[in-house]
Design a protein around this nucleic acid. Structure first.
Length: 317
DNA sequence: TATATTTGACCACC
DNA sequence: GGTGGTCAAATATA
């Protein structure tokens, strides 16, 4: 049972991180993308934890059958071919908020294979390589994170192997981030990328630049997204075990943190063979001398669920 | 030579 | 026992 104080603390942390991000985005010289990505991931993590806390503390909210949408891992959706066929959504951003029977205070990113699997937050993006956009993105996109492939496994029911990556700086900095890349059976250009944990290997910005006043003057996008986050972050805690909550957060993240989701996947050649494509995903972050391909995350169809409302006015007043 | 990738083996979980 | 995830030695690459 999470107490309200911890919940408020997490929400306040998310707010603070969002404000930091907003402050950076409002500057002429934006921060390194690595920082933006990491901050976005931290915000996501904080929100997830907040939901868990609210869920566990809401009267009668714990699902009796353990089938809370919030606790539903995204992975089986992509594995299960039957369910996969039933899915009509073009894109999904899934949040594995951990099953409710797991400790909600898994705020320490403990490292280790089993611990990571069980305690680190996980989310999945469905990534599409867009052939028509080859070379269409100017500039170098660098999220600052490099991945090292440590395994590949044939998955039952999947035509293509799943590749396992972990942060290059796992050993040197203890970064717990990892990801799995699974190519879709149906669409050769579609990949399910599951991220586990958030990067701790980032270089944090100077102290002086971190905290910012709660009130910032409204600016045009992307800041407007943060502002909308501020104004629209209303949670109806009694509905936390419904499907609206993760959908709303998904929409929020999709709208507000495209860089975070749209990792700088690149492709050297659209004629890459099937076996190359998975590697392209993993290799992309390390390469900067190639043209980009737009990663069509197809997040546009996610609905911003108004029912997921969190009255955060107390934090913004 | 250092670093990254490949791949078979091992282990934990269901 | 099957499967997914990870390890680690061998190999490849810069």
């Amino acid at each position: 049972m999470a107490n309200g104080g911890a919940l408020l603390e997490e929400l306040a942390r998310a707010l603070d991180l969002a404000q930091q991000l907003e402050a950076h985005l409002s500057r002429a010289s934006s921060p390194p993308e690595s920082y933006r990505c990491s901050t976005a991931a931290e915000i996501l993590s904080a929100i997830q934890k907040s939901i868990l806390m609210a869920q566990s503390s809401a009267p009668g909210s714990p699902p009796s059958d353990g089938a809370s949408p919030l606790s539903e891992s995204s992975a089986p959706e992509f594995r299960d071919q039957d369910r996969k066929g039933m899915m009509k959504k073009r894109c999904e951003l899934c949040f594995d908020l951990l099953s409710s029977d797991r400790s909600a205070n898994a705020d320490e990113l403990t490292f280790g294979s089993d611990l990571r699997r069980k305690t680190l937050h996980k989310w999945t993006t469905r990534v599409r390589l867009n052939p028509s956009a080859a070379g269409g993105v100017e500039g170098t996109v660098d999220d600052g994170h490099s991945w090292r492939k440590y395994g590949q496994k044939d998955i039952l029911g999947s035509k293509h192997p799943r590749a396992y990556y972990r942060c290059t700086y796992q050993n040197t900095q203890g970064c717990p981030a990892a990801k799995q890349v699974q190519r879709s059976d149906d669409d050769p250009l579609l990949f399910d990328v599951t991220y586990l944990g958030t990067h701790s290997c980032r270089q944090k910005p100077p102290k002086g630049s971190a905290p910012t006043p709660a009130h910032k003057e409204p600016k045009q996008s992307p800041n407007r997204l943060l502002l909308s986050f501020q104004s629209e972050m209303r949670v109806k805690t009694e509905a936390l075990d419904s499907e609206e909550a993760p959908a709303a957060i998904s929409s929020l993240i999709a709208d507000w943190s495209p860089d975070f989701l749209e990792s700088p996947y690149q492709v050297h050649s659209l004629d890459a063979s099937d076996s190359d494509l998975t590697d392209i995903i993993g290799r992309a972050n390390r390469e900067s001398d190639s043209s980009f391909v737009d990663m069509d995350f197809l997040l546009d169809e996610l609905d911003l669920e108004q029912s997921f409302q969190f009255d955060a006015s107390v934090f913004f007043s």
